[in-house]
Write a protein that binds this DNA or RNA. Structure first.
Length: 488
RNA sequence: GUCCCCAUCGUCUAGCGGUUAGGACGUCGGCCCUUCAAGCCGAAGAUCGCGGGUUCGAAUCCCGCUGGGGGCGCCA
């Protein structure tokens, strides 16, 4: 078998959608697993909605996801160009071929006439063949020469019978050719329609497999007809099930985030989003849930792709994201929050981040298992970055100002204990634990007030480690300040 | 309306004629414990959408039904 060639063909009418991203991932994984080529092609035949900006955004989002391709608009390749608007001459050649073999005909119907006919059919009338289909060749040519507006339609062969679509995921699906309408191939302005352009491109770019969304399955028989009219063998199709919102309904704005970059901005890691999307409709086996791009690339097969649509589960995505946060390591962690650090004003610039690198990396083990989304990280370690810490209102009330709990004494004693002790976790912990006996108090009555004083909140990363990361003077200052508002 | 696709715990899934129907997220309980997490242990949760077949035996094969989804544009 010749080399596998697959493509991801987004239309740049918006950002990279989460469903599109998964389609891209599966195409990529299949190409890599088969030792084939993965091609990026931009379907920008709709001039109204396609923009260069969207093309750039899509490419950036794909790169962020960790995908790479062998041919594409920005890197070229042997079968370019990879923008449909730059391939109009190839569609003309294809149309000429179809004119010659009689598989297309000009249609002069106005959109009003078409709308009327559609309406009649909707109301139950039997669909009638397009009247232009039977126009004598000479008459049609005369009207074209007269400059009459027309489109070119596919002439579905009357005796074609059953069209079988071979699909690697669904198996064979059969469609009655007699039920396929004569779709428009070329618009009155000379531009190709989607269904025509895709086939021309897929043929010319030597695609062996077409992996795309389920929503295209019903369009496939008509595309098969175009392959046949052009005299080319059909590729293997693979239609992926749709992705739905958490409620099981088709994904829409109602569900919030829909684009890859929105997920990135929400704080999801590229590795996690990739892993999650890969898992939506494909599983390497019954056990494995966490795997890398390379693992997927070595194990992916179309046969194992699920046939049912899948609903997004944000809980699982978050869990997966945290798994990756826990395993990313301190260096990557600091790199990942660099921007947030600067935006929040904790660091002046990149150089400043590097200057504080030791502290930031030391903070990683304290927070990694509780950072679900990356955007949570900076607020979570803020108390380590500034001299002052703002005391959380609720924590003050519940911990510092609950009468009869000895919060003030605990804080004062803590300050005394930390005054001269060696500044290491072990000694800090020993010093503070010593208070338990001295005050004869339960751990939470001693440690919680100290936590609020030092970390600003009754919920925080580990206390002793946090203290160690702060300067003694800062800790003592915070304790003194908290003691002012604390009650016994 | 019509054509096509789909159907296993709440969710993502494993299963491809014989399993106590397995795993993951979530949920609940426990352990750990100075908080929140994380981690570990355990539990509940699926009459495999329904009804017929085929078979000694069906979640797995066949047919029908129901439910859901998608296509039917000079959108992609």
């Amino acid at each position: 078998m010749s080399e596998v060639r697959v493509r991801f063909a987004p239309s740049p009418t918006g950002k990279l959608h989460i469903g599109g991203a998964r389609t891209a991932i599966y195409n990529w994984a299949f190409a890599r697993a088969m030792g084939g080529k993965f091609i990026l092609r931009i379907e920008d035949t709709d001039p109204e909605r396609s923009t260069q900006e969207n093309i750039d955004l899509i490419i950036r989002a794909m790169r962020w996801l960790g995908l790479d391709w062998d041919e594409g608009p920005e890197i070229g390749g042997a079968y370019g160009p990879y923008l449909q608007t730059k391939r109009f001459d190839t569609y003309k050649v294809a149309l000429e071929k179809m004119k010659e073999n009689g598989s297309t005909y000009p249609c002069f119907c106005t959109s009003e006439e078409l709308a009327q006919r559609r309406e009649a059919v909707q109301k139950g009338a039997d669909p009638e063949p397009d009247p232009c289909r039977c126009l004598a060749h000479d008459e049609a040519q005369a009207r074209i020469d007269a400059g009459e507006s027309h489109v070119w339609r596919l002439k579905v062969p009357q005796d074609r019978g059953i069209i079988t679509v071979h699909d690697a995921i669904h198996g064979d699906s059969e469609f009655d050719a007699a039920l396929q309408d004569d779709m428009v191939l070329v618009r009155s302005d000379g531009s190709p329609t989607y269904n025509f352009a895709v086939v021309c491109d897929d043929v010319n770019m030597k695609m062996t497999h077409i992996i795309r969304g389920d929503d295209h399955l019903s369009n496939t028989p008509r595309q098969v007809l175009v392959y046949e009219a052009l005299g080319y063998p059909t590729p293997v199709f693979a239609h992926l099930p749709m992705i739905c919102g958490p409620d099981g309904k088709k994904l829409s704005k109602r569900h919030g985030a829909a684009s890859v970059e929105e997920y990135r901005d929400m704080g999801y890691l590229s590795d996690a989003l990739f892993n999650y999307l890969a898992l939506l409709g494909w599983a390497p086996d019954g056990e494995t849930t966490i795997f890398s791009r390379d693992e997927m690339a070595s194990k992916f097969t179309l046969e194992r792709v699920s046939k049912n649509p899948s609903a997004l589960d944000y809980d699982k995505l978050e869990w997966l994201n945290n798994q990756y946060v826990q395993s990313m390591g301190a260096v990557a962690f600091v790199d990942a929050i660099k921007g947030d650090l600067i935006d929040a004003g904790y660091c002046a610039d990149d150089a400043d981040v590097e200057a504080k690198r030791d502290l930031l990396e030391a903070a990683y083990p304290l927070v990694c298992e509780r950072v679900k989304l990356m955007v949570d990280a900076v607020p979570m370690i803020a108390y380590l970055l500034a001299d002052e810490v703002e005391l959380d209102e609720k924590s003050v009330q519940k911990v510092l100002q609950k009468e009869g709990k000895g919060a003030k004494t605990a804080i004062l004693e803590a300050a005394a204990a930390l005054e001269n002790c060696e500044w290491k976790v072990e000694t800090i912990e020993a010093a503070l634990r010593g208070l338990l006996e001295k005050l004869d108090a339960k751990p939470r009555l001693v440690f919680q007030p100290i936590r609020v004083a030092v970390c600003g909140n009754m919920v925080s990363p580990p206390l002793f480690e946090s203290i160690e990361l702060l300067d003694r003077s800062v800790v003592l200052k915070r304790l003194a300040k908290a003691a002012e508002v604390a009650l016994d």
